[in-house]
Amino acid sequence: MTTESAVLEEPVVKKQELPEFELVNLTINGQSFKLKLQPWVSLLDAIREYAGLTGTKKGCDHGQCGACTVLINGKRINSCLTLAVMRDGEAITTIEGLSDGVVNHPLQDAFIEHDAFQCGYCTPGQICSAVGMINEGRANSLEDVQELMSGNICRCGAYNNINAAIMEVKSKMA
């Protein structure tokens, strides 16, 4: 071993050390994923590139748009600003986990009915965020919804329809 590394040593360029791989257990939409990841992998990239669930979107990678919103233990977060290793053992819900393929979450149906999107790219984040907002129980009026959904940018400008969809679902739940 020692001899070998001596032979391979390159004097000109210093070998840069790369982060160690770690086993990260994520439960995504009830399914267990055991992923071998380096600590520099964001939760967003872990979900998309390593677990292969591409419903969650990257819109800015800096917590400035909300497209990557997922739920961790029912709370909405920006998955781009947390490392997957920090979330070891946690239960994550993404857009794919809100519908069982037959029955949608009421928000998903309401989004279609109210045309609460155009390009659809921010939509998974909007819906996850709305689920998280309803869990929080602080949105009591349209004005509250406007403020508490402001962490999700929709460049197509579907806000009025997003709010209509959310208000409808909220009124049915009440």
Partner: peptide
Amino acid sequence: GASPQLRNM
């Protein structure tokens, strides 16, 4: 400050 998601983190 920030957004609900960021405040949750």
